[in-house]
Simulated scan of single mutants.
Amino acid sequence: MAKLQYLVIHCTATPEGREVSAADIRRWHTSPIPTGRGWRQVGYTDLFHLDGSVERLVDNNEDGNVDPWEITNGAAGYNSVSRHIVYAGGCDASMRPKDTRTEAQKEALKKYVLDFHAKHPDVRIVGHNQLAAKACPSFDVPQWLQEIGIKA
């Protein structure tokens, strides 16, 4: 068990307007190589659907620790101290990075992050691209956090 240090925001890197299911993510992450990544666990705790609904992918006790059964595979080197969340989208039709969050996703993500921050004010909220050379989550998380009233 480790102290929770990061909330990492991701995108599924799928085209704008395309819904993603929990089954899709499980297949992408846990299917054996070469069809999947061969991971033991999916990469995210929660999935934000296009309609703003939030689906729990991995159980979490919501405390300030990351228990072994809560670890998801979102960012190499950070998984044991992080919670990872993901929104469906993040690419344009040509698969280039684009902030494709629907208004419903933006509202749901804002509510989730504000609630999370109220419970865990010392946990750093970041985009995946702040921990690795990635475009994910295809928007500027520090700027967005300032817009919703959280100092990044």
Rank of each mutant, 00 (worst) to 15 (best):
V141D: 09
V54I: 15
A132K: 13
K106R: 12
S53N: 14
T45G: 07
A132S: 08
R56D: 02
D122G: 02
G36F: 15
V141I: 10
L57F: 10
R40M: 03
S138D: 08
H117I: 01
S94W: 05
S94C: 05
K111H: 08
R124I: 02
L50E: 04
G74L: 00
A22D: 01
C91D: 05
V81D: 07
H49T: 11
C91L: 08
D59E: 10
Y44I: 12
S80Q: 15
N60E: 10
K110W: 04
E62T: 01
N60K: 01
Y87N: 10
T100M: 09
K98F: 07
E107A: 08
A135C: 08
L131M: 05
K98V: 07
G90T: 04
T72Y: 01
D115A: 14
T45L: 02
F48P: 07
T35W: 12
A104Y: 10
R83T: 06
D59N: 07
I71F: 07
G127A: 05
V42E: 07
E103W: 07
G89T: 02
V141L: 13
W28Y: 08
P68R: 13
D51F: 12
N79R: 08
G36D: 04
V81C: 14
D92Y: 05
H117W: 10
C136I: 14
K119I: 02
G43N: 05
Y112E: 08
H49R: 15
Q41Y: 05
V141T: 07
K119S: 08
H29W: 09
V58S: 02
V81K: 14
L109V: 06
L50A: 02
K111E: 11
F139R: 06
N61T: 06
S82Q: 02
I33G: 00
G90I: 01
N60P: 04
V123M: 03
G89R: 02
V42K: 00
G43V: 03
A75L: 01
M95S: 13
V126S: 12
A135P: 15
F48D: 01
D24R: 06
E70K: 07
V123T: 10
F116I: 11
D115P: 00
G64D: 15
A104E: 07
H120N: 10
D59F: 02
S138G: 15
W69Y: 12
A104D: 00
S21Y: 03
S21E: 03
I85H: 06
E55S: 09
H29M: 13
T30V: 01
N65E: 15
C136F: 03
V113Y: 02
V113R: 08
H49G: 02
T100G: 09
S94N: 10
N79P: 03
S138R: 14
G38F: 15
N79H: 11
L109E: 06
G38S: 13
W39L: 11
N73D: 08
T72E: 04
S80E: 15
L57G: 06
S82M: 04
D51R: 14
D92G: 04
G38H: 12
P34C: 05
G52L: 13
V81F: 11
R101K: 09
R37Q: 15
G127E: 03
D46L: 08
P97W: 09
